[in-house]
Write a protein that binds this DNA or RNA. Structure first.
Lengths: 161, 161
DNA sequence: CTCATATATTTGTCATACTAATTATTATTG
DNA sequence: CAATAATAATTAGTATGACAAATATATGAG
């Protein structure tokens, strides 16, 4: 039973290092944003003008966290909040021209940075990993069946189109 | 190249859920500590009276983070700082009787909680996962060769003895 | 239509991660 | 031995994550 604790820690430790490595490279190369901020910009560029709730869903963040990241991006003038056409409770987040330019400039460089993690691994490894992580994710759904969240599997395939 | 970004996010998202699920159960069952605090107690119980730097290494935390977690555990009277016998810069962290009792009480229950993540997976999956995560971890060693850190593989095998 | 309920966002609080800088002490070098 | 460099721990600042509560608006039941 002990080993499950160790596996969990291994997973967390690896994820932390992946993020830390990316952030380190972002800093060295003076991207001027954090890895999480990049995630927001990336998704906005892909899907364009999402409400914050949707954006949070796509980015895998909760709403308070998203609000704060959007605040920072607004401060950097990379995105702006626009009123939602049908719902005055809601905002649509829009990439500014500066933001769009940043996505386009950095896209390839982020890709190279991310790639570093996956050296020495092959397609079969990716498939294994994807299946295993999806299984874990679904094992831990606290509110199973109650919500309309995107199943783990679809979520990923959406990203890599 | 895009897919590497998505894999990284998948990994982070899964790790986050594993931690969140465990913390949720800790809270429901009123363990009175966080998952990260548990990691410290667990390692102290296993290795006994480590200097903070060593403890940080074993737990996969950096030193500032460890300092703060130890502060919280001292506040809960689960551990205490003792002077290091040979080095006055350093402290040794010691499990109090209360702390030791807590580790013993919770050990099995934490194991059960952790196990939940790994349902529907078999030994081969664990082996794959371990190998893949270790590969990633070693791919991202920023200061390769410069430090005496524990290689990924040994780190895990140490935990599950 | 009105009231109760649900939803989108924000704010607050605590815990953790990373970086840089500070302090006290130890180790090294000339 | 004295000056310098290295190390253990701490502190400070910023960002993120989880959760609870507050606010404004929308929706649904009667």
């Amino acid at each position: 039973m002990e080993q499950y604790n160790a596996y969990s820690q291994l997973l967390e430790r690896t994820a932390r290092r992946v993020k830390q490595y990316a952030q380190y490279q972002f800093n060295c190369q003076q991207f001027g944003i954090t890895v999480d901020q990049w995630t927001i910009l990336k998704n906005l560029n892909q899907y364009a003008d999402l409400a914050q709730k949707e954006l949070a869903e796509y980015c895998g963040k909760d709403q308070p966290t998203l609000t704060r990241i959007v605040d920072l991006l607004v401060g950097k003038q990379l995105v702006e909040r626009r009123p939602h056409p049908n719902d005055r409770r809601s905002f649509v987040v829009h990439l500014t021209p500066t933001g769009k330019a940043k996505v386009e400039t950095l896209s390839g460089r982020v890709g190279s940075i991310r790639m570093q993690a996956w050296k020495n691994l092959n397609e079969a490894d990716f498939e294994h990993l994807k299946r295993i992580l999806d299984t874990i994710y679904d094992n831990l759904d606290v509110r199973k069946g109650e919500t309309d969240q995107v199943p783990a599997t679809e979520w990923l395939s959406d990203k890599i189109e």
